[in-house]
Structures are given as C-alpha cells and as structure tokens.
Write a protein that binds this DNA or RNA. Structure first.
Lengths: 243, 243
DNA sequence: GCAAAAGTGTTCAATGTACACCCATGC
DNA sequence: GCATGGGTGTACATTGAACACTTTTGC
C-alpha cells in the first residue's frame, strides 16, 4: 500500500522499484523561503502550482538537488532561477522529511531562507523568464499552501527573528542607503511589534555597524532623514552564507 | 568521471545508473552526535570503522533513513541501536550534503545531537549487542574522524552551547538528582570556561526550574551537598524532541 | 503657520559581574 | 584540628524600558 504509493510515480520499471524499496535513496529537494519587505511588511515569494499534487495551491520555490552540487549551491541555483538575484543572504534552516509530506513520493527537503531587497527583485520581474504565477504574500496572511510549506515558513520566520536578535541581518532587506526609520520599520516588520524610536536608535548606534552619510532622503514632503549604510568590515565577521 | 564515481557502488544495473544520473535521488542518512559528561568533561560517542572508506577512523553513529520513518524517528532508531537508550533529548542540527563528503557515493546526512546520562549508557554497554569498537572521546581531543564528521561535531558543540544559554538542557546530562556543583560542572564542561560559583547559583535559582530535596550527597569525605532535581512542569514548555 | 516625520536624554529597573569568608563533614 | 568541598551577600557596571518635546521641511 504505502510501498505502491511511494514508488508509483517512478517509471523506470521494476528494477527501480526494487531499489526504491530496499535501498535508502530518496528524492532530495531544497526549498527556499524568500523574504522581503514590501508594502504589507514581511512578505514571502510564493509560486502557484500548475500541476497536481496541490494544483493551484501556493508553494515555496524549490527544486531537486543535483548530483554535482552541494546543498548551498542548490539553494542558490533555485533562488537564481526564480528571482535572478545573486549575492544575497541565504541560510540553511531545517530539513523536513516526513514520509507523508509529499503525497506521491518520499521527498526530503532541506529548507533555506533568503533575504532580498524588494528593489532587486523588481528588476528581475521586468526581465523575468518565469511565466508561472509568482507573487509576494504577507507572512501574516498566507494563502493555502502546498505540502508542509506552512510549517516551513513558520520555522523560517522564527529562525529569522532569532538571527535578527543576534546579528545585523536586517540590512539585507534594505537598499544600500537607508534611513533609521526604514531600518526600524524592518525590525518591526520582522519581529511583528512596535519598538520605541529613541531606544531603537540608541541600541543600533551602539552596535557600531552603521556608517553615517552626509546625504538625506528627499522622499516625501517632510523633514529629510539622514541616510546610513552598513559597515561591511563589521558585517564580514558574522555568519550566514553570502553567495 | 564524477558520474562513474558516484554510481559505481550501486549494483542494480544500467537502469538504476540511469536513474541515478538523471533523477535526483540520493542516499540519505542521519548521523547523531551523542554527548555525555564523563571524566574528561564533554565527550561524544564514536564508532571505529571496520571497513573502507576511512577504515580505522572514528565516526559518529549513523544510518540510512528508511522509507517509512521520518527523520526524527530515524535518529531515534540509530541512537537506540547504538546505545539502547530511549527518552533522551534529541535535536536536528544541520544537513550536510557536499557531493564529495562521502568518497564512494552521494550521501546527504541530516545530523542530530543527543544528550544522554553517562550512567544510562553504562547499562547498555553491559548488555551491548554491538561488538564494534565504540568509545567516548573528549570533544576537545578528537581522534582522526571519517568523512566530514569533525565539522559535524564542531557544529553540534556550537549548537549545544546556544541551546544551553537559551533553555535548561543541562539536566539531560545528569542523573535525576544532582548537586549544584554537578550542574555547574556540566555548564563549565559544555561552555569550556569557568563560572563563578555564587553567580551561577544565583542565576540558576532565579530561573525557577530546580526542585530542592531534603537529601544530601553522601559521596566523598567532605560536607554533604544538597540534591536538586529539575521541575518537569517548567521544562515541558521548552523545545526539543523528547523521545 | 501647520502638518508630518526626524531627531534627541534622562530616569529607573533588571541583570550581569567581581569578589572573600564561614560551614559541615571525614579523617 | 585540619583539609576539603559546600554554601552564602554586597557593591558596581551594564543593559533594557519607559517616556515627551523640539526641529526641519513642504505645502
């Protein structure tokens, strides 16, 4: 029963079925939770499935791990294929391997999360070669998700919050130069709560990774805000994979 | 070249080789870094390999993930097979998947770490059914390790330290009743540094998960020390897998 | 001149850190 | 009675949290 369910989508004949049952090979994928900050706050990039299983449900971008690439490389590739962005923060978070998580076969997925600037991805959407239905969704209002992708996203949000408390990853979600209010809003969106402006600024400035510029945002119709950028020298001593 | 290396150990014939090259199935194992506290401090359980590759080198206990079990179950099973202990702290930590990490095939391993009481495992060694060379090794003086197991152990030690700062996992390494000095030594062994006795006691007592007993250690020839145990009610709200 | 966001300090509480002596027991 | 590990408190520094008004600009 289970055995049939597990192998029926493989179509190489009996020898492969035998291998599938008796040896311990599995399909291995990487799934990448791609975070950005947009109008509705912290959002993730989802792809609407065009095939069964879970046709029309939304899913995290993912793909099979190839034999010649390591897991980080696979995650980078999936990310690049979907978004055409490179050189972003990417971190392995957890591996999901319930035998029933994929209804048709045993698929073990190594999940990652990535942080990208909303700006960067706009570019790639313009020149995009993916005609699939791809869209951003607020992590606080997710649509129906395929497989166990709701779990994976929840896990990614938790891990992102942990990271944020420990290391300055927030700048990965911002343009090169940003205002302190931008930065604070990024923190608030990720942590999902309000922060006192004065305390936030005091804390952030004390960490010493901000570079002050003599430029000001000429955005709206209010008092211009000073622009800052992150000091790479400080950042480089931190963990995470920069691809 | 790479292709041959990757498939040569599989002996089901050309159809399987074809599958191996064109689809994305991999061998998936779990490896469990089993920690305990013994005479030399924080130690890990290692198995000496009897076959190539890495014959005679030491390795973390591991095994293939079966088709019908999830990853946690696989880790529990491997742990039970090696140590006959159950109901211990077990946590997934990281997945290693470099294509070259195993010299004969593509093996992706989901690594876990476990915390067990040195006492418990003595029992299982007595009745042990494993006649392989199995022994404890200080994490600070490791022998030659097979594959990338040195990396896996390093990662596990980092993760264990993180856990220790966040949640009271140390009691997993101690007998049910223990003295505050035992507990402090456990912390010191894991963190690899000295802690001030008064500050440690103040901090630990303020966390409120210790249950004070009216029993005293009648160990050596000095003043008897009061025994404590962990308050389960507090512990149960914490994360980690208790199997 | 007014609406709107930028910018700025102080006080208090809680937590962490440094540090030295007496106590209970076995021998 | 002495050697050994058990047990205890205080002072100071650091960090986190609460809280309100002035400044600069576009309109």
């Amino acid at each position: 029963m289970r055995y049939n369910r597990l192998v029926k989508h493989i179509d190489f004949g009996i020898v492969v079925m035998y291998m599938y049952a008796e040896t311990k090979t599995h399909e291995v994928t990487v799934d990448v939770v791609i975070f950005t900050i947009r109008d509705r706050g912290l959002e993730v990039l989802l792809v609407q499935r065009e095939q069964e299983p879970f046709k029309d449900a939304w899913a995290i971008p993912g793909g099979f791990v190839r034999m010649t690439e390591n897991l980080d490389e696979a995650a980078k590739r999936v990310l690049y294929e979907r978004t055409r962005v490179q050189n972003v923060y990417l971190e392995q978070q957890y591996t999901f391997g319930d035998p029933l998580r994929h209804p048709k076969s045993r698929v073990i997925t190594v999940s990652y999360f990535a942080l990208i600037r909303a700006d960067d991805i706009h570019l790639s959407f313009d020149t995009g070669l993916n005609v699939q239905n791809v869209d951003w969704h607020s992590v606080y209002e997710l649509p129906n998700l395929a497989f166990d992708h709701d779990q994976i996203i929840k896990h990614a949000v938790r891990k992102l919050r942990d990271r944020l408390e420990a290391t300055p990853v927030a700048f990965q979600l911002l343009p090169k130069k940003f205002t302190l209010t931008d930065l604070q809003k990024t923190y608030e969106n990720i942590l999902n709560n309000r922060i006192d402006k004065r305390n936030f600024r005091k804390k952030i400035m004390s960490l010493g990774f901000l570079l002050e510029h003599n430029e000001f945002s000429k955005s709206s119709s209010k008092r211009p805000a000073r622009l800052y950028s992150f000091n790479k020298d400080v950042i480089e001593s931190k963990k995470g994979i920069f691809i």
